[in-house]
């Protein structure tokens, strides 16, 4: 039944989709939102595309998660690489030398 309804609705969805930007363009615009190149608002036709294209809507949500994660990256991954001990000793010696 679900398949039947989907088949019936498909031409209308395609007709609506034809009046909106392509997925490639929507994905490009999604990225631009984070760079203040053209502002942060989503154009109306793109919004219409996002209503009917679940893949693009997902892409936008996932980019928002990546954006949020990136902002926290500096605090989250300090345990992954450590200043080597030899370097630590060398830098301390250099600071002592500079102080005296």
């Amino acid at each position: 039944m679900k398949r039947f309804v989907s088949r019936i609705l498909r031409p209308f969805v395609l007709l609506l989709a034809a009046g909106t930007p392509t997925c490639r363009r929507v994905v490009q615009q999604a990225s631009q939102r984070f760079d203040s190149v053209t502002g942060t608002s989503i154009p109306l036709r793109t919004r219409a595309h996002l209503l009917i294209c679940s893949a693009c809507a997902r892409y936008l949500r996932q980019l928002e998660l990546i954006h949020e994660a990136s902002g926290k990256l500096a605090q989250k991954d300090t345990s992954l690489s450590k200043l080597p001990d030899a370097s630590r000793t060398r830098i301390k010696a250099r600071l002592r030398c500079e102080k005296s």
């Binding site: 500096a74 991954d77 300090t78 345990s79 992954l80 690489s81 450590k82 200043l83 080597p84 370097s87 630590r88 830098i91 301390k92 600071l95 002592r96």
Partner: peptide, 26 residues
């Protein structure tokens, strides 16, 4: 000198993630 112990790893990681060369980061 205390900075090295308190912030050395943070600064090193910050620099390493951007220059991707341990010697340069140090």
């Amino acid at each position: 000198e205390r900075w090295v112990d308190n912030h050395g790893d943070y600064l090193f990681h910050f620099a390493l993630s951007r220059v991707r060369d341990a010697t340069k980061a140090e």
